[in-house]
Design a protein around this nucleic acid. Sequence first.
DNA 1: CCCGGAACCTGAAGGC
DNA 2: TGCCTTCAGGTTCCGG
Length: 270
Amino acid sequence: MPELPEVETVKNELAPHVVGQHVSNLTLFYEGIVREPSVDEFRARLVCQQITGLSRRAKYLLFHLGSGDSLIIHLKMSGALLLQTPDKLEKYIRAIIHFDGDKKLYFRDPRKFARMALVRDVTTILGGLGPEPLEPDFTPELLEELLKKRKAPIKPTLLDQEFIAGLGNMYADEALFAAKINPLRPANSLNKDEVKRLHRAIQEVLRLGITNQGASEVTFFRPSGEMGKAFWDFKVAHRRGENCPACGTPLVYMRLRGRGTYYCGKCQRG
DNA sequence: CCCGGAACCTGAAGGC
DNA sequence: TGCCTTCAGGTTCCGG
């Protein structure tokens, strides 16, 4: 599932192909993919525009347009932006953005959760997001301050995009394992050393995910249609029925706030 | 206001 | 073989 490292990978690999391109047409096979404005207005404000740049905020991908508007895409669970459609990815194309010179960008999404929006002011979509975990302003001191205000378990706190923006279920489990912190610990109960470890772990697992070009289990594909390699470096996430790579203890699987949660009951005792 | 859970979707996997 | 249930989970919405 696309989380911060996956969206960063899409941005990096898409940019050389789309920046500078002019949109020539839009094909919609599933109109529900347009979040705002109306389908007609969306089309009118997108077609003929030049893509002047790409950026990422949390799990959102932003296409900056010559008009000053931004096309904002969220891939949610199963979305992919593809430059080509190999046989196995032919199905579930929900939209195609056409560029001058017959280039195409395919928006594939089996589950129909993904959305795109066209806005003048990006804060209408991005306004409530918390700090970017890989930016310099995300310091251990800031994390400590934020954690003090939260009494919910640390795992769902890390998934709250208003608390910190970009972590999803897989990387939250990975970060807590790397920091040796139990996912059920109240957020405000972490001591200084634990906060420091968590801060470092969050950045490490995200950077490793980006280096590995994202995780591909089943649902994430890079623009080329290839899969990323991050999944193979996961220590606990989605490793149901396996043993802890550090101590060999069978991993714990539990549902926490409706989310599948994996951790080592021995290494993450605290 | 805060918190927890359901809804949105569809396919895969497991049980019987 | 096939039907039914459960699971997957980011975000939004709703009820308590």
